[in-house]
Structures are given as C-alpha cells and as structure tokens.
Simulated assay, not measured.
Amino acid sequence: MVDSPKVLVVEDEALLLFSISDELKDAGFEVLEAVDAQQALVLLERNPDVKAIFTDINMPGSMDGLALSRYVRDRWPPIKIVVTSGKHRPSDRDLPAERLFVPKPYTTDGVIAALTAALR
C-alpha cells in the first residue's frame, strides 16, 4: 500500500494477533495491536490517524468486539471496521453500519482484501 494506512488489530489470542499483524505489516499496513477493547480505545485516543480496525468479536473484558465496533462507529465515524469471529455469524442488526465481516478461520489474503475494500 502506497500510503501505509494505520490499522488497529484487536485480538485476545496472542498467536493470531501476532500472525495477522505481521502479515498486514508485510502487506504495507502500519499496525497497532490490542488484546482487548479497553486497550483498543486507549490506542484510538492516542492515534487519531487510525484508518481501520480489525476486531474479533469474542474477547475478555467489559466490552466485546461488537460493542467495540459500535462504539468506534459512534465516536470515530470515519474509521473503517472489519469484524471477525469463529464462534458465530452476527446478524446485520448486531453489527454497526458500513462494516465488513470475515469469518474465522480467515486467510491473510481475505483480511487484506476486506481492509483494502473498506479503505477505498
């Protein structure tokens, strides 16, 4: 990617977090990492140039990925949202507007394609 858009990856499983983060960096994204929604919100406050988030739905803490994505949509409307889950497929009414869903297990190419499409 020419302009290296900044993406926040939110995933509580360390292996998945490090793996997809490395792959996204290799694809030209600038990547921030968070292990839960609270950490994600801190990073979003400190990094106003984040263009997209890629978040898992199932995470520990007081806010899951669905709640995080709705909060981001309300607080930072320009940020693009890509949601993933291996446990269930949320209905459209459970997800915020203007988001993409990538089911687990995902491929790196699938995540890159979703982020690229969202950022257009």
Rank of each mutant, 00 (worst) to 15 (best):
G86M: 06
A118Y: 00
F29V: 06
G61H: 10
P60D: 15
G28W: 07
L119G: 13
V9T: 05
V82T: 02
D109P: 00
A14F: 14
H88R: 13
P103D: 14
T107P: 06
P48E: 10
H88P: 02
K104G: 15
S19L: 09
L8F: 01
V10W: 00
S91R: 05
F18S: 07
L16Y: 13
N47T: 04
V50T: 08
L95M: 14
A52Q: 04
S21Y: 14
R73F: 08
V2W: 14
E30N: 05
A34F: 02
M63N: 08
L8D: 03
V50Y: 00
E33G: 06
W76G: 01
P105Y: 03
K80Y: 09
L16E: 13
D74L: 08
R99W: 12
K51D: 06
P77S: 04
F18P: 00
P103S: 14
P60G: 15
F54L: 15
A118L: 05
R89G: 12
L24T: 01
A52M: 06
M59D: 10
A34V: 03
R73Q: 11
A118T: 03
A118I: 01
R46E: 15
D36A: 11
L17I: 02
A97V: 15
D12V: 00
Y106D: 11
E98A: 09
D109Y: 08
V35G: 03
E30I: 05
A34Y: 01
D92L: 14
A34R: 00
A37P: 02
K51F: 07
F101E: 11
E23C: 10
V31L: 08
G61D: 14
D22I: 05
K51A: 15
L17H: 06
S21R: 01
D94F: 10
K104A: 15
W76F: 07
R93A: 15
L66E: 10
E45N: 02
P77Q: 02
V111T: 04
R93P: 13
L95G: 04
K80L: 09
S69C: 11
A14C: 11
L16F: 15
N58W: 03
A113S: 08
I57N: 07
S69V: 06
T107H: 12
L15C: 09
A52F: 00
K80S: 13
F101I: 08
R99F: 13
A34D: 06
R120E: 15
D74H: 12
